[in-house]
């Protein structure tokens, strides 16, 4: 199986600057998305994800400028997400140099957005992000899994995890795949920020349910977590933020570890 497992650092961007603690040494401007993109690309990151969290009217222009500058600086693929609600939002991002767009809340509220995007730009540019939360099965009718804590299901949440939707994440993933999702970015809202490892059950069940690549997200704290999500969770790619930003485990270290565990990884 020569297709390498991908390691993807995620950068949260607000008003054109990377937010969340960034702890790289020797960076002239630690919050500059371009400089960080270049740094990660030099460390053999396989892709980058930018999540725009700007909440203001200049959002589009600011983001367009960042995307153009990043595209000029690096020649690895990158995805941009956050606030993409229409095909015209996506067009601006893709024509500024991003390779993929990720949609989340807007797609849950209007699933047709996925098929519209796929039709215009091609399935390969459309990442559907799912923010999922574990729920104990009471009288829920959709797909569920058996765990040590009893049967559970995964609920889709929107607006950054703030709004529960009642939608079953497994069923949503299947529907989104049929509509033309090219890839899934699956974030565990239970694990996000904990550093105790990815939600393996969630990643595995989504990966088993769809025929397109799955990026696991939320919970990475050490190299073992990456190994676990690739080997047991069947993830195609693993996304992480703080574990790389704080330089606890730099990307080359994590990649070397994975290679030693027998995972197919691109080192370079």
């Amino acid at each position: 199986m020569p297709l390498a497992k991908r390691i993807i650092p995620c950068l949260d961007v607000d008003h054109g600057k990377v937010v969340k603690g960034i702890n790289f040494i020797n960076l002239r401007n630690a919050g500059d998305p371009v400089e960080l993109a270049r740094k990660y690309s030099d460390q053999a990151a396989d892709e980058l994800v930018f999540l725009d969290i700007t909440a203001s009217s200049e959002r589009r222009d600011l983001l367009k400028e960042v995307v153009e500058r990043v595209a000029k600086a690096v020649n690895i693929p990158f995805t941009v997400g956050g606030g993409i609600r229409s095909t015209s939002d996506a067009r601006i991002i893709l024509c500024s140099g991003a390779d993929k767009v990720s949609v989340n809340t807007a797609a849950v509220e209007n699933p047709k957005l996925i098929s519209d995007l796929a039709k215009i730009f091609g399935q390969q540019c459309i990442v559907v992000a799912i923010d999922a939360k574990r729920r104990v099965v009471e009288n829920h009718a959709g797909s569920f899994i058996e765990t040590d804590e009893g049967p559970i299901w995964f609920e889709v949440t929107t607006y950054g995890g703030r709004k529960p939707t009642g939608i079953n994440a497994i069923d949503w993933a299947k529907q989104a795949a049929d509509l033309g999702a090219g890839e899934f970015l699956v974030t565990s809202m239970d694990k996000d920020g904990t550093k105790d490892g990815y939600d393996i059950d969630l990643t595995k069940i989504i990966s088993d349910s769809v025929r397109v690549p799955v990026i696991a997200s939320g919970g990475a704290g050490k190299p073992e977590h990456f190994f676990e999500v690739f080997s047991i969770g069947k993830a195609d790619a693993a996304l992480a933020a703080s574990v790389f930003h704080y330089n606890n485990y730099p990307i080359p270290f994590v990649k070397k570890y994975l290679q030693n565990c027998g995972v197919n990884i691109r080192l370079e």
Binding site: P2, Q124, V212, P213, D236
Partner: peptide, 10 residues
């Protein structure tokens, strides 16, 4: 195999 073939290969 999963299609599209997406990622780094040799």
């Amino acid at each position: 195999v999963k299609v599209p073939h997406m990622g780094w290969n040799t």
